[in-house]
């Protein structure tokens, strides 16, 4: 652990609360609340480390219909030390939880690539769950030129 920065569940809730407040100002509280519910359900009271999970997304996406995502955790992927799952969340999408990727030791490497839709510019969140019950979180902003939902 040492000097690794930690995000407590409380801090996530505080940030989430701020998002809810912002959402109410612009009339979209439901989506942010849905994303908070997803994050809290995944964390299940655990404290997430902010290192170890790589969330690779473009900083600018011209087309919100197809935004590439690369996710990875450096893990030995042995029977006793592996990544169970990585969850991908787009808080400002109509359905914020984009996907949950589930790994096994036979995966060999905890890495996956896919393509997602983004309704608008937002901070994408990824959460990894490890076999030792640790959780890792990463966040990255994607600026979206043309939204990819509802069109």
């Amino acid at each position: 652990m040492g000097d690794e920065r930690l995000i407590s569940r409380r801090q996530v809730l505080v940030v989430g609360g701020a998002v809810v407040a912002l959402g109410q100002m612009v009339g979209r509280p439901a989506r942010a609340a849905a994303a908070d519910a997803d994050i809290n359900r995944i964390l299940a009271g655990r404290t997430a480390k902010t290192t170890g999970l790589t969330l690779d997304v473009p900083s600018i996406a011209e087309n919100g219909l197809v935004v590439p995502v690369n996710l990875s955790v450096a893990s030995p992927m042995t029977a006793t030390d592996y990544v169970r799952a990585i969850h991908l969340i787009a808080p400002e999408n109509p359905v914020p939880l984009v996907a949950s990727f589930r790994f096994t030791p036979a995966s060999g490497r905890a890495a996956t690539s896919m393509r997602m839709r983004l309704a608008q510019t937002q901070d994408i969140i990824a959460i990894a769950e490890l076999s030792n019950n640790d959780v890792l979180i990463a966040k990255a902003e994607v600026k979206v030129t043309i939204g990819g939902c509802g069109g």
């Binding site: 359905v95 939880l97 996907a99 990727f101 589930r102 790994f103 996956t112 393509r115 997602m116 839709r117």
Partner: peptide
């Protein structure tokens, strides 16, 4: 490997 996909895929 498996993946649960939602409408944002």
């Amino acid at each position: 490997f498996s993946a649960d996909w939602n409408p944002s895929v």
